[in-house]
């Protein structure tokens, strides 16, 4: 499993070339890129930061879970941190499998789960200020314990 957190440009072509194997009939790629707008505001760039060691652990777990759950042969997950400009790749997920259905399903599951559980945040820089992007609420199994004392 090729799982990494990097500061430099993600080498999409190299990762794709490396993952392909004779047993595969499909390689599914999710290329998450920086969009130039959020809710009508023009975005200049994004700054990504992570709880790095934990994020890597979580990403490794996701790759293993995806392989077991969907029966795909190989999963690569690479996330970039630091300042990213419009159009640059922030996260790349590549799934190789004998058949396309499992590859599509696994790829979708990995990105959706990553976006909810892997501790990586982005600060959006607009023309008129910067904000930390609002995340989705954590899944119940992540915050499983009584939250009432937080009132």
């Amino acid at each position: 499993m090729n799982v990494a957190i990097v500061e430099d440009v993600i080498a999409t072509e190299a990762i794709l070339a490396e993952i392909k194997s004779g047993e595969d009939g499909a390689v599914c790629v999710f290329d998450g890129i920086v969009r130039n707008h959020t809710r009508g505001r023009k975005t200049l760039y994004l700054d990504y930061e992570a709880y790095r060691e934990m994020a890597l652990d979580q990403m490794r777990g996701l790759a293993q879970d995806a392989a077991a759950r969907f029966g795909v042969r190989e999963v690569a997950i690479v996330h970039r941190l630091g300042r990213l400009l419009i159009g640059e790749t922030s996260v790349l997920i590549v799934v190789a499998s004998a058949h396309r259905g499992a590859a599509f399903d696994a790829c979708r599951w990995v990105i959706d789960t990553l976006k909810k559980t892997v501790p990586i945040w982005k600060k959006e820089q607009f023309e008129d200020g910067a904000v930390w992007a609002d995340g989705e609420p954590f899944p119940e199994e992540v915050v499983s314990g009584p939250a009432e004392r937080m009132g």
Partner: peptide
Amino acid sequence: VWTRLAVAVNREYASRSK
């Protein structure tokens, strides 16, 4: 954010009662 955050203890998600 205090009501929406998650907590990790030694890099693993943990409940409020841990």
